[in-house]
């Protein structure tokens, strides 16, 4: 593990460039290329701007930033004391919307999700903590929009909703497996996987889910699946995995079904 860099800024817009500078240095030191550095800058900028404008809403406060390298990933954590707010629950704006249908909101969070490889949110000890991860080695064959995206948020104490999107295939499965493995190691063993954004799942993707399920069960937890698209649900039915996983039409129903 690399050394941790830390910075605390006052929750004012004029400190946003300082936060951006801070992450730029960390990202460059981690060996990221200029495009990836830009992604980190923008993600931190948008996250801090949101916390200042909506979280603190003009009240005084501070934001703590922390960057470190974990294996092949740059981990950026942003912690604040503003009221509990999970940015991952915000409805995503639609990039295909016409000019008239654009209201202007939600784009900051959208960029954070698009530009980082993973985003996690939690609320602990009265603090919002957003963790954003950028992989240090990107595969040359992948396009930003095609990446499988993982997001995690604690919807109630001890229950984590993992949002997946894109294609869960042999290319993305190793990352999926590692990310879900990290969740289990962190003690997040009650998981509801929101599959609504998953377009395709291959055997490697299934294997990653089963491995996570097994590890979670071993620790007294469970992995439930919610909101599968019909074509993905069909794969689960074909191979009989509906016997393994609890599968629910929605995250709320999974929550109720498990009695969590």
């Amino acid at each position: 593990m690399g050394e941790k860099r830390r910075l605390t800024i006052p929750a004012r817009l004029d400190s946003v460039p300082i936060a951006r500078e801070f992450v730029t240095e960390a990202a460059r030191a981690a060996g990221l290329g200029s495009r990836a550095v830009y992604h980190c800058q923008m993600a931190v900028d948008e996250a801090c701007t949101n916390i200042i404008e909506h979280g603190y809403g003009g009240r005084e406060g501070t934001i703590d930033l922390e960057c470190h390298i974990l294996d092949d990933r740059l981990v950026i954590s942003i912690t604040d004391d503003s009221p509990r707010f999970n940015p991952l629950e915000i409805e995503e704006p639609n990039p295909d919307a016409s000019l008239d249908d654009r209201s202007g909101g939600g784009w900051g969070i959208y960029f954070m999700k698009k530009m980082m490889d993973e985003i996690h949110w939690s609320y602990r000890g009265g603090r919002n903590r957003l963790t954003m991860i950028k992989r240090l080695k990107s595969r040359p064959d992948e396009h930003l929009r095609d990446e499988a995206l993982v997001s995690a948020s604690e919807i109630k104490p001890g229950v984590w909703v993992i949002g997946l999107s894109g294609r869960l295939d042999s290319v993305t499965a190793p990352r999926l497996e590692r990310t879900l493995g990290d969740e289990v190691s962190a003690g997040h063993v009650r998981m509801i996987v929101d599959m609504s954004g998953v377009e395709y799942i291959s055997s490697s993707g299934l294997k990653a889910l089963v491995k996570t399920w097994r590890a979670a069960r071993k620790q007294g937890g469970d992995v439930l699946l919610a909101s599968l698209r019909p074509e993905v649900a069909e794969v689960f039915e074909l191979i009989g995995f509906t016997q393994v996983f609890g599968i629910y039409p929605s995250v709320d129903e999974a929550l109720a079904g498990a009695g969590w």
Binding site: Y38, Q41, M42, D45, E46, T49, G104, W107, G108, Y110, F111
Partner: peptide
């Protein structure tokens, strides 16, 4: 550099 604030 341009963030979502500029786009808006």
């Amino acid at each position: 550099y341009m963030s979502s604030a500029g786009l808006r």
